[in-house]
Each structure stands twice: as C-alpha cells, then as structure tokens.
Design a protein around this nucleic acid. Structure first.
Length: 475
RNA sequence: GGCACCAUGGCGGAGUGGCUACGCAGCGGAUUGCAAAUCCGUGUACCCGAGUUCGAAUCUCGGUGGUGCCUCCA
C-alpha cells in the first residue's frame, strides 16, 4: 500500500501516517464562521484539506474516509451582524454557509462527509463542560465557565508556549483577567447576549469559541480522530485549547496528527480588511475559472507561505490551457482512459508535495511527444497503434495524477472555448466568420482574412489553422 | 520581550554533499500567406561571513533580511 507521510505539528516532524482503523479514517477541519464572504485564504485551507481528503480516499478507499468540516453559526460577530442588518441570525448563517459551499465547489472541493453546525451541537458542548467542571478542570466565575490551564500539565505542547511565556505576552483585557484565576484560562461558556443563549446547568448562555470543535469532532468522528487540520494561525489558541479540553474530558488524545497550512499573503502586506486588500473567492470567480484559482493555490507547498499575485493566476491559466490541450488530443487516441485508479506519484505522498506533482503534470515529456506525433505526423497504421498503446498508459497516469489534485475535471473543449463575455460574439457568429475566412483564404484574399482575424483578436479569440480545418479558443 | 518558520535565476518552485530539476516569461531558429499550435536551440541563481570536507545551494556556527503566532483570524 502507498505510504503517506505527514508533518505532524504536534511532534514537529514528518511521520508515516497510520490510521487507527484503515476502514474508517477520520479527519476534521476547522471551517468558517459564516457571517461574510470567504476569502482566498479560507480557500487555501479548504483546498489543502480537500487534497488530503482525496489522497486519503485514494489510499484507503472512497467510503473509508470520514471528513468533517464544521460551520460556526453562533459567534459574537454573527450576533453583531444580525443586530446591524436586522436579519435573524439563522438567515445570515444559512446564506453565507451556502455561499461558502458554492465557492468551494467551484474550486473543485469535494463536499466533506459531514458539515456539522455549532448550534446543533450545543448539547454536546454542555455535556463536555459538565465533565470538565465535575473533574475540576474548569470553574465558574461571574456567569462564565473557564478552563483552568494550570490543571493541564501538557498545556502549550502544540504551540510551544509555556504558561510563563504566555503571561509575558499577555494582551487580555482587564475585565477578563478579573474573572479568571490566570490570564491564560479560556472561556468555555459565557452569558446570554442579545437573546442568544441556551439553558445549561451552569447558567443560560452561549459557548466559547473552542468548545464547539471539541464537541463536534467527538460527535461526528469520535473522541480521538486521526487528523485534525487547519491554518497555522489556529494553532494557538484555538487548537491548543481544543487539545486541553478534549484530552482532559476524555483522558485520551484528541487527534493523532495535526496538519497546519501556512498563510497566503499579498506580497508586501498581510491581507486584512483595514488595508482593503481582502480577495474574496466570489470576486476571483468572476474573472478566473475555479480550477485556475485551485492550481494557483497548490503551486506552493501547503507548509510554505504563498504570495498571491495576478501573475500567479496568469501562469496557472496558461498551465491549464496547455494541459487541457494535451487532454483534448489524448482523448482522441485514448478515449477509454478513466480518471480513477492507480497514480504512480509516490513523491506526492511525501507530505502532500503538490509542487512536485504539478511539475510532473507540466513535465509530460514522453506523453507530450507521443501526443504531438500522433496529432501532427503521418505514420503507418502499425506505428500508430504501438504509439497509441504507449499513450494510453502514459496518459492514464497523467490524468489520474491530475485527478488526485482535483484538476482537469472539465471537458477540454468546453475549457478551451471558455465562456464568452456578455455582448461578445456568439458561438454561431464565430463559426460563420470562420467559414467566411476559409472562403476568402481559399481565394487568397489575405486582407479580408486578416481583418477577420482582427475581429477575433478584439474578442480575445485565438484561431488555430490545423490540417483538419480551423479551431478556435478563448485566450 | 517569548515561541516558530523562511531566504534558490525576471517570476513560481524542486533539490539535504559531488552529475547545477521543472514550469512561466525572454531570446534565436524551423514551420505558417500572417498567426496559433508544435518542434529545435539558448542565457540567467543558490542572502552575507567563517568553518567542516577532496568537494556545499545542500552540514555547523555567526550575521543580515523577511514572515507568522503570543488578541479575532485560514
């Protein structure tokens, strides 16, 4: 069986991945708080998790991987948004959950096997908090319930923080400190706000940020899961606190492997709302196909910073155009090749090395030359059949590799022709112009032929005169 | 202040001791009525300094520069 290694943030080293049960591999990914549009950084985290999901499915079998990604639908920001807009909370969260799912679908992200909502797991959270209170890991104070970090010796193991160090860098407000035994304690339950609250033995209120993931991971996947993933920024405090809660409540590790993806930035500046340089998935999708965005996100290794730029998108588009051209030609000679099956891409299973896999897709050497010779050269039937056999093998590996990355999922002709802009030439108009151009070319009326080419150029349509006539595509 | 990460050609990005990937862009040529596609050829790099070694982009130490986390954050 293919061996997958993963860099485990908890141990700070690469390890061979071994699931507790190969028939039921579990992964949990911290999903969004649904109160606004998702940005490209959210997309990176989701795409990385999706690639991991695809790889696990490839290795262990489609039905053997359980992937939960939560939707946080109760939170101060949502309450504030509800107050501001006058819409009820659930309308806001449902709207943006749908948008999130649609955006990710456009990036070829497979739906997770479950998408639990925080509000549907309040009971589980309350049960966890009760356990923590009963066992002395948590305490009540001024309508709140806090986790007492001094009761958990391992606290800080994920982020490398020590309680002493945390005290020095402490930026917690005075009000909070007054309620807590120590500033590093974090809130499990807080009082009702603006009518948002649930009844609990320790008082009516709403959950703190971290407890929801512990409750949902337990409910959807179990007390110990195989892989927990998310962005590096979640390492502390979010994941650190999840570990503390879950480990103390269950007496066993929350997750065996912690996988964190690095940040995406905008070159000089961090992407932030105050700088006004937040790039929304929704906006990018207006100008770029989702696969272009996906490829751009996968060009850097997930543990490296990714600098987002227009050039990165352009290059990704160019790569995909080339690959789709290869796919288009190969489909003519190897129509029965399936996208599912073995992919001989061993390197890829070394900590999800997407850049190396992209290299493999680009560096198609033998495949390209087979395809080019079949497309462009005349040859005897005997030679052609031999070459077709070789192409079926090479193309199969290539296509399945692309599939592992979630790329080349579309019909190549549709891809190459692209979507026309509103008010642009219709496909029929294009065909008619091509017909006219063929006629004037036959009459060697080059000025009219060039004029027609000019019309196409203005529409960003590229003509290709081949031996079987003229084809076109959008640039 | 504490913790962690990173530094390769115009751009992206492999490469953990020797043979200097790969892609994009560029340049020259073939082909084309002109193009596109395709093919052939081609330049450019390893942040700085010291050390280890026969030999370092790759190991060690020291700089410099950059980034993230320590507050909501993918």
């Amino acid at each position: 069986m293919t061996e997958l290694t993963l860099y485990n943030s908890l141990k700070r080293e690469k390890e061979v991945f071994k699931p507790m049960d190969p028939k039921r591999v579990t992964m949990y990914n911290c999903g969004p708080t649904v109160y606004s549009y998702a940005h490209i950084g959210n997309a990176r985290a989701a795409v990385v998790a999706d690639v991991l999901f695809r790889v696990l499915r490839h290795i262990y079998g489609k039905d053997c991987v359980k992937y939960a990604r939560n939707l946080t639908d109760v939170d101060d920001k949502i309450i504030a948004a509800a107050k501001e807009t006058g819409f009820p909370m659930y309308e806001i969260t449902e709207k943006f959950a749908k948008i999130y799912q649609d955006d990710l679908a456009a990036l070829n992200c497979l739906p997770p096997t479950s998408e639990p909502k925080a509000t549907e797991h309040i009971g589980g959270m309350i049960a966890l908090i009760e356990t923590l209170l009963a066992d002395g890991y948590a305490y009540e104070s001024d309508g709140h319930v806090f986790f007492d970090v001094s009761k958990y010796d391992e606290y800080g193991q994920l982020s490398g923080n020590t309680l002493d160090a945390l005290k020095k860098g402490d930026r917690v407000g005075e009000g909070e400190v007054a309620r807590k035994k120590q500033s590093a304690d974090f809130v499990l339950w807080k009082p009702e706000r603006d009518g948002v609250g649930w009844n609990a033995p320790f008082g009516r209120g709403r959950p703190g940020w971290h407890i929801e993931c512990s409750a949902m991971a337990k409910s959807e996947l179990g007390e110990t899961i195989d892989i927990h993933c998310g962005g590096v920024d979640l390492k502390f405090p979010h994941h650190e606190n999840e570990i503390a809660q879950s480990n103390c409540a269950h007496g066993k590790p929350m997750a065996n492997y912690w996988v964190h993806n690095e940040f995406l930035n905008m070159g000089k500046d961090k992407m932030s709302k105050s700088l006004g340089n937040v790039v929304l998935i929704r906006d990018l999708l207006k100008d770029w196909d989702g696969e272009v965005i996906r490829l751009a996100l996968l060009k850097a290794h997930y543990r490296s910073e990714l600098i987002w730029s227009e050039n990165l998108l352009k290059e990704s588009k160019k790569n995909l155009d080339d690959w789709y051209r290869v796919k288009n030609d190969c489909m003519r000679f190897a129509p029965n090749v399936k996208s599912k099956g073995n992919a001989e891409t061993i390197d890829f299973f070394d900590d999800l090395d997407t850049p190396n896999l992209i290299k493999f897709l680009s560096d198609t050497g033998a495949l390209q030359s087979l395809r080019n010779r079949l497309v462009h050269e005349g040859m005897t039937m005997q030679v052609q059949l031999e070459m077709q056999d070789a192409l079926v093998i090479g193309y199969g590996i290539w296509l399945r590799t692309a599939n592992l990355l979630g790329l080349l999922q579309k019909d190549p002709e549709d891809w190459l022709r692209g979507k026309g802009k509103e008010g642009g030439l219709s496909d029929d108009a294009i065909d008619n112009l091509i017909k006219e151009r063929a006629e004037v070319r036959a009459a060697k009326n080059w000025s009219r032929a060039d004029e027609i080419r000019g019309i196409f150029a203005a529409e960003n349509i590229i003509l290709e005169d081949g031996k079987d006539g003229t084809t076109w595509r959008r640039g």
